[in-house]
């Protein structure tokens, strides 16, 4: 009985209010827009939500690392990968093979992630400033490579939109599950929870933080591929819009912005909540300005409620 108690509590902790919102919004969507939300259409819907889920998960490691850890460059990095894959590899050099495109996307993400890690963890520049720097640089570089939208994408990549977008999503979940069982992941949670205590416990704090940014960068590479699949072309302007929505999703999913607490389940839940919320509002033909407003309001409410829940739990524990 105790075990089931604590696993329910864990689920609650992992998703917090995001989980409740997800359920409510899903029911609302099914009720309001039956044709779009029939079960047979769920594959398409997941395809639409996939890049945001990817972006949210890619934002998570840096936030888990704590002490203001944040990776603003996730969105532009997705756009950069999108531009490299379509413009440089496919259109300019005629390379369409997934065996080139996937590694290039991953390595591009990893390299940018390492740069972020070097700036934020090794040089200890405030993460928000450091990654704002890479945000701007990447946005600029992407626009230089690709001044205007361009297409198309290789067929195999386009086929990964819709129901098959499950494939890259599953890849991300598998990678995360593996990383979660590496020694460094435990150290990452410890560093995020309390870096001074981690230091006195002999955890190499700087290396662990560096890893968080590098790992997030690599995941952004995958998210960039998911974005490419969805839009089936290259677009220099879409990527950067993902950064803030992804961070909102992560916060909604109960990942503590103070670090050390949160999960991939939470990040995914948060991303789905934002997706479903936008979907509900679209059925009402609400203008995009109001859409932003609703996003913001829900985010603030969720973060406040999560903080309250934290305080209650902590009060109960002592």
């Amino acid at each position: 009985m105790r075990a089931s108690d604590s696993s329910l509590a864990t689920l609650w902790q992992r998703t917090s209010f995001g989980g409740v919102l997800l359920l409510v919004l899903l029911i609302a969507n099914i009720f309001l827009n039956p044709p779009r939300f029939v079960f047979t259409n769920w594959g398409t819907l997941i395809g639409l939500a996939a890049p945001l889920i990817g972006a949210a998960i890619a934002s998570t490691p840096a936030i888990l690392a704590g002490r203001g850890g944040l990776d603003l460059s996730v969105g532009p990095l997705m756009g950069f990968v999108n531009a490299i894959v379509i413009k440089v590899l496919f259109l300019d050099n005629g390379i369409a093979s997934p065996f080139v495109i996937v590694p290039v996307a991953l390595i591009t993400g990893l390299v940018v992630g390492c740069i972020n890690g070097f700036l934020a963890a090794v040089l200890r520049i405030q993460p928000i400033v450091a990654t704002l720097g890479t945000f701007l640089v990447l946005t600029g570089v992407t626009l230089t490579i690709l001044p205007a939208p361009l297409g198309p994408a290789p067929d195999w990549l386009k086929s990964l939109a819709g129901p098959l977008s499950i494939v890259p999503l599953a890849a991300i979940f598998l990678i995360w599950a593996a990383v979660k069982r590496l020694p460094i992941f435990g150290q990452l949670m410890a560093v995020g929870s309390d870096d001074r205590a981690a230091f006195t416990a002999g955890v190499p704090v700087t290396q662990v933080r560096f890893f968080a940014y590098a790992f997030g960068g690599m995941l952004s590479g995958i998210a960039g591929l998911m974005l490419t699949s969805l839009i089936g072309s290259a677009d220099p302007n879409i990527g950067p819009t993902f950064t803030l929505t992804a961070i909102a999703a992560v916060a909604l999913g109960g990942v503590s912005l103070a670090g050390g607490r949160g999960s991939i389940t939470g990040a995914t839940t948060g991303a789905l909540v934002i997706f479903l919320l936008q979907s509900v509002l679209t059925t009402f033909n609400v203008s995009t300005h109001l859409l932003q407003l609703a996003n913001g309001a829900i985010l603030v409410t969720a973060v406040v409620l999560t903080a309250l829940q934290d305080r209650l739990q902590r009060g109960g524990a002592r």
Binding site: G186, M189, A190, S193, D194, A197, T200, A201, V203, R261
Partner: peptide, 17 residues
């Protein structure tokens, strides 16, 4: 302040070093 990780489990607190 510098010993336990309050958001981690007993097991992970034990094993972190």
């Amino acid at each position: 302040a510098t010993g336990i990780f309050s958001s981690l489990s007993i097991l992970d607190n034990f094993a972190i070093s």
